Simulated scan of single mutants.
Amino acid sequence: MTTSHPGIHPRHGLDEVIHAPVRFSIVATLAAADKAEFGFVRDTVEVSDSVLSRQVGTLEKAGYVAVTKGYVGKRPRTWLALTPDGRAAFAAHCQALRAIAETAADR
């Protein structure tokens, strides 16, 4: 018989903001670069502009993503980048996922 210990299971290390599949995909994409253009992230994650905008808004409110607007020539562009807090949260979230997988494999 196993005893439950509140707060010990690695799932407690998951970040609820990042855990949603689309947000996780956005953060994973941004973790691989210093910054990425909105359209690149949209196409990589395979979502619409509106879905990406809404999810980026959630990540920005959490302090995980910085949004920068500018121009390339005369065309407006939006760039997305993980903040230091976003990078730390993503690393911790990934570590929690690995710990959950390892815990399951050890049983």
Rank of each mutant, 00 (worst) to 15 (best):
M1A: 11
M1I: 09
M1H: 13
T2M: 07
T2I: 10
T2P: 03
T2C: 01
T3S: 15
T3N: 13
T3H: 10
S4K: 09
H5E: 07
P6G: 00
P6W: 01
P6V: 05
G7N: 04
G7Q: 04
I8N: 04
P10G: 09
P10H: 09
R11E: 06
R11G: 00
H12R: 12
H12L: 08
L14S: 10
L14E: 03
E16V: 06
E16Y: 07
I18R: 01
I18M: 04
H19F: 07
A20S: 11
P21Y: 09
P21R: 14
V22W: 08
V22S: 03
V22Q: 07
R23F: 13
F24T: 02
F24Y: 15
S25N: 08
I26M: 06
V27P: 01
V27S: 02
A28T: 15
A28P: 04
A28V: 05
A28K: 13
A28E: 12
A28I: 02
T29Q: 13
T29Y: 02
T29M: 05
A31W: 05
A32K: 14
A32R: 15
A33Y: 07
A33R: 10
A33N: 04
D34W: 01
K35Y: 05
K35L: 09
K35N: 07
E37N: 08
F38G: 00
G39Y: 02
G39H: 04
F40L: 12
V41C: 10
V41K: 11
R42V: 03
T44R: 13
V45N: 00
V45F: 01
V45Q: 00
V45S: 04
V45P: 00
E46K: 13
E46F: 05
S48K: 08
S48N: 12
S48T: 15
D49E: 13
S50M: 04
S50I: 11
S50G: 00
L52E: 12
S53Y: 09
S53P: 00
Q55D: 11
Q55A: 03
Q55E: 13
V56G: 10
V56E: 02
G57D: 05
G57E: 05
L59P: 00
L59Y: 10
E60Q: 14
K61G: 03
K61I: 08
A62N: 01
A62H: 06
G63I: 10
G63N: 08
V65W: 07
V65H: 10
V67R: 15
T68Y: 12
G70E: 01
G70L: 04
G70P: 02
Y71Q: 12
V72S: 13
V72W: 07
V72K: 14
R75L: 11
P76Q: 09
P76C: 01
R77A: 11
R77V: 09
L80H: 10
A81H: 03
T83I: 08
P84T: 12
D85R: 15
G86V: 01
R87M: 09
R87H: 12
A88E: 11
A89E: 03
A89P: 06
F90E: 06
A92V: 03
A92H: 07
H93I: 04
Q95T: 08
L97R: 15
L97V: 15
L97K: 14
L97M: 15
R98K: 08
A99K: 05
A99R: 10
I100C: 06
I100V: 12
I100K: 06
A101N: 07
T103G: 07
T103A: 14
A104F: 14
A104S: 09
A105Y: 02
D106I: 04
